[in-house]
Amino acid sequence: MSYCVHCGVELDRWETKCPLCQTPVIDPWQDKNSAPPSERNLLSEQPEKTFNKRLFVLLVGVLLLIPLVTVVIINLATTHTLTWALYVLGSEICFWSILVLPLNCSGRSPYLYVAIDTAVVALLLFMIYLENSATNWFLPLALPITLLSGLVVSLIVMIWRSDRTVKLRKTGWSVWVIACFLIALDITVTHYLINAIQLTWAWYAALPLQIISIVLLSVSYSARACDWLRKNLFM
């Protein structure tokens, strides 16, 4: 029999450390080869996962098909051609690829999903453009903004997937990327509207964000500043 040198309690023969203080049991006379009885060698129980992802994806697919088929029939019956039903088709493809697809293909690279989502959104906008092509808005405006958004999301994903960086620094870089995105967005929109490369409203949004990101990044790179913040702002 073994006793814990700290707690003074006798320990069960099969304990390798004291359950009360975690002190290891060192008993040179204990037979280490003998196996514990079955009631001391039990497995842990966990419920089986009952969420069936494939079934869920199938159900959502069927649920999306019902309104789609309905609007296609109505559209064809009223105008004899597919017009506004294409919007529903595009929206449903977007919904499916953004929310449902990642559920069914867990473990794949998130950049793949971002690329697919960007392509699907571009496709939806292109469908809308085909139906409403009075002005040329797709190539100079919609496509660059969609690609920019895809790029920004990929960059933020890359920042947050990095294991070595602290959260504060990740937030700082993410805010900086968003500020850059707003500047690029403003330039794209202004270029489309007045055919000139200049900043209009982005100053008001991007400047505070840039300041915030600089503060966050400087704090994150300074151990003293981090300590000061932790000490004074803990909740």
């Binding site: 707690c7 003074g8 309690v9 006798e10 320990l11 099969w14 304990e15 359950p19 009360l20 039990l42």
Partner: peptide, 14 residues
């Protein structure tokens, strides 16, 4: 134990 009562301990987390 301090009161002189012997205790034998075992646990489910080894």
């Amino acid at each position: 134990v301090k009161r002189g009562i012997p205790v034998k301990v075992e646990s489910n987390r080894r």
